[in-house]
């Protein structure tokens, strides 16, 4: 397959403004297929914005983004194609409160014509099993704990069978005792070879699964490297300060 050869994500000179504020300053980043990336940095550094540009939740003003060989920034039909390929998990879960867990998981596959009802439900149950909450399928999101809701959100994204998963601070809104169950789910996913980009402050997670850790500040990538080097031998002063603050 030629598709396995091309990078999962290619960003070239990606620049994003919110009004006069420059959130991303000419970002270059290549993510290989199956690579697990953790993005960290102080709040307001542009790390969430960075991953939100990959499914065009944020439009960029300059630069080029290619996802699985599809040029996202060409617009049109490409945007929908990329979104079908890229799953996303949010800090606030963003489950649909008026739908049951199962309906949350089947809505997109049904409406995008991916699957018929029986197939979509079978797929949903399979992924709910994988995130270890098959028994909650007929409940509403409000009846679940935060950790369970976030696992449903992961299952919901997986139901579209994405090739890349984006995580935007998936554990930041959780009570401490629920962080582990979500991280364990993400670790399982990483072990199965999913391409992942995770914005997170969970440095233990980064050490355990990341192939590469990226440090951002003020809209730019300051430093990146494999976890051992990133944590063991940080080169820039700013990364040393940051690591000192969070540990």
């Amino acid at each position: 397959m030629t598709q396995a050869q091309q990078p999962a994500v290619e960003m070239r000179g990606v620049t994003k403004f919110f009004g006069a504020f420059q959130a991303l300053k000419s970002i270059d980043l290549t993510v290989e297929q199956g690579e697990r990336i953790v993005v960290c940095g102080p709040s307001g550094s542009g790390k969430s914005t960075l991953i939100r540009t990959l499914n065009q939740l944020e439009e960029i003003q300059d630069g080029k983004i290619t996802v699985d060989g599809i040029e996202l920034t060409a617009g049109g039909e490409n945007v929908a194609k990329v979104r079908r390929d890229v799953g996303m998990v949010f800090q606030q879960f963003n489950l649909f409160p008026h739908l049951t867990v199962l309906q949350n998981c089947t809505l997109a596959p049904l409406k995008t014509g991916r699957a018929d009802k029986a197939t979509a439900e079978a797929t949903a149950r399979k992924y709910l099993e994988r995130v270890k909450i098959p028994e909650q399928a007929d409940k509403f999101p409000a009846q679940l704990s935060g950790g369970q809701q976030q696992r449903v959100a992961i299952a919901r994204a997986l139901c579209m069978e994405p090739r890349i998963m984006l995580f935007d601070e998936p554990t930041s809104a959780l009570d401490p005792e629920m962080v582990k169950e979500v991280l364990d789910t993400m670790i399982d996913l990483a072990r199965e070879g999913m391409t992942m980009l995770c914005v997170t402050h969970e440095m233990d997670f980064a050490r355990a699964v990341a192939d590469r850790v990226i440090f951002m500040e003020q809209g730019a990538i300051i430093e990146e490297g494999p976890p051992a080097e990133f944590f063991g031998n940080p080169k820039s002063e700013r990364l040393r300060n940051f690591l000192g603050q969070i540990s």
Partner: peptide, 11 residues
């Protein structure tokens, strides 16, 4: 966030 989640699911 509801619209964003739905958008990300390519609805």
């Amino acid at each position: 966030g509801q619209t964003e989640a739905a958008t990300a699911l390519s609805l």
